[in-house]
Design a protein around this nucleic acid. Structure first.
Lengths: 346, 346
DNA sequence: TTGTACGCGTTATCAT
DNA sequence: ATGATAACGCGTACAA
């Protein structure tokens, strides 16, 4: 059956270049039909004589023919692919979105291509354009790109759906998280527990979502509680590192930029012998999969990650179909009270 | 300068379809030259008169011309892209590889496209072929694909580099982890601590890397210690769930399929009030970034993740250049003794 | 129903 | 140095 029966009596070479390119023309010649007919058969066009179709199919099978996606894309003017650009694949938050997006798009036979801008925040715009040019649509999550850049780029990125930020004055659809509401809920929760001196472990300074949180915090802090802002970051390691300085100040509760940071801080506090929540309360943001299992389980603002992917796809699909996408959604996080928060120590 | 100066007096539409396609032909017409010349200018061909080049550049600038990657790929016969297929983006292990691969390939102006086979293990082969056909090379990590399938597919995937598995009898380069050695080190460590009854939290049954571990364990167990094999999985949640059954049996140490699982189990044991390592020792595999911070820090077999990406790229590059890639590497994990292992309770 | 011929947007090979 | 023109591999009017 398979051609590897001769394995064992020699090395089977891994051909860097196929023996001879098998194109639609070759199949046509072998099957004794025109290329148009082959094309029709391959695309399931029903109006071809069954005998011809058979000949084509067996020829294609025999030659191992597979239409070139590139040539196909050029002729069709579409690729059947969408791309998503994320700032950090390591963040479980994006993994959730990616998963949902893959599934939703997959149902309509669209494939998802993931591009990670990683640390090259500098090249974020380049990557976005490049990714977009190779496919039919883009889901863009670029928290560090300036509004200026985004306005400039938007026309070249369409059809495009924005995640976690908006582009006022344009019709570019966007899915956002109501960070302010989430922060308010967390603060209210902490205040109700008697906390009055809070620390905020800030995310990347250039990130819009960090700015949103900071603004909400400052607004809430007015005449209500003391707020200490500590530069931190977005990763577990960042949170872990900054936790050392927590005891330098007189705070009783910590609001982390996100769950990863909160987790890192939680871990470090444990190492330092500081009990959570009796000596210090701590909250995160996002509700990524495993923070419900940390010790203690993390109180956080739960973002409905699983809804973002599908919603993004629907809007992208509308745009690609020339229709008007549904209105933007501003997801409201749900306060998830768990074990990492408790009454403020007297 | 920018055309968004009129923002504010109306909605700027997000054009699903660019106003008019600006192709190389249009630029040529506007600049008053042939398409060939435009192509030359765009590709930095030095032998074009400077005045013509100027005209072309300004025309291109003015029209916002950007060569179509698809058409370009078709004409050139190469895309400038490589793909990597991973079974689970959520596993930090792959994120490490992806990162290294992105950087290495990026230095030679190749972009990385990530495809996640997610739970569609069934479609893994399809995805692999699809991904490969759209670019110039593939880094494949498909732990659940059968050898049969892989042998069958190999020719269509070349140039291709395998991660975590080999294809004996072929010249397909592969980068593998010496799971057996890692397991042996972990076992030896546990035995030296006096443990004689071990549990193994098995990964996905269909995964080759799981089979490798199991084999190594059975080999080591011969007349040395008792081995209990518990079906588990590959995620944090899997480990968390299975930990409940750990106390049903009389084991003193646990070897988890990977760090994620170990972490999950660790977390659950803590909830159950079982102290690690005094009552139970536990080890993981991989050494993903944050397990050094868990409580207690996890003893594990450290895999040099950061080396995999670059090594994979070098081999892929060789293949694409028609050269013979360097020999395969069988990475030997390094035993990382931390706080999650201790003397067996008497 | 089938084949012919052209278009998709670009690069490369020739003449000139 | 520049411009026709033929690839690249495929889809699809249109004609037959």
């Amino acid at each position: 059956m398979s051609n590897r029966s001769q394995r064992g009596d020699g090395e089977v070479p891994a051909p860097a270049i196929p023996a001879e390119r098998v194109t639609i023309g070759l199949v046509a010649k072998v099957a004794g039909v025109s290329r148009a007919t082959v094309s029709r058969v391959m695309n399931g066009n029903p109006r071809v004589a069954e005998d011809l179709a058979m000949r084509v199919r067996s020829a294609a099978e025999e030659l191992g023919y597979d239409p070139s996606p590139v040539a196909r894309s050029l002729a069709l003017g579409r690729t059947g692919i969408i791309a998503m650009l994320v700032p950090d694949l390591g963040n479980p938050m994006f993994q959730g979105i990616l998963h949902g997006l893959t599934d939703a798009a997959g149902e309509q036979d669209y494939r998802l291509l993931v591009a990670d801008s990683n640390e090259n925040l500098h090249e974020e715009p380049v990557l976005a354009v490049e990714a977009r040019r190779r496919c039919d649509g883009l889901v863009l999550c670029a928290p560090r790109m300036t509004d200026e850049q985004l306005y400039e780029l938007a026309p070249r990125l369409a059809p495009c759906v924005l995640i976690n930020r908006e582009l006022p004055g344009t019709t570019v659809p966007s899915l956002t998280i109501d960070f302010a509401a989430g922060i308010r809920d967390l603060v209210t929760h902490l205040l109700s527990l008697g906390h009055r001196r809070l620390a905020y472990l800030a995310g990347p300074g250039t990130s819009v979502s960090n700015r949103n949180r900071v603004e909400a915090l400052h607004k809430a802090a007015k005449n209500t509680f003391e707020l200490l802002e500590l530069p931190c970051g977005a990763t577990f390691a960042d949170g872990h590192a900054v936790a050392d300085h927590l005891t330098d100040h007189d705070v009783t509760a910590v609001i982390a930029y996100n769950d990863l940071v909160a987790f890192g801080a939680l871990s470090r506090l444990h190492e330092l012998g500081i009990n959570v929540p009796t000596q210090m309360s701590i909250v995160g943001f996002d509700d990524i999969p495993f923070v419900r299992y940390t010790t203690p389980p993390l109180t956080t603002a739960s973002v409905p990650m699983d809804r973002l992917g599908p919603e993004a796809w629907r809007r992208l699909w509308s745009l690609m179909s020339g229709e008007t996408p549904e209105k933007n959604v501003h997801f409201r996080p749900r306060l998830e009270v768990r074990g990492s928060t408790g009454p403020a120590p007297s």
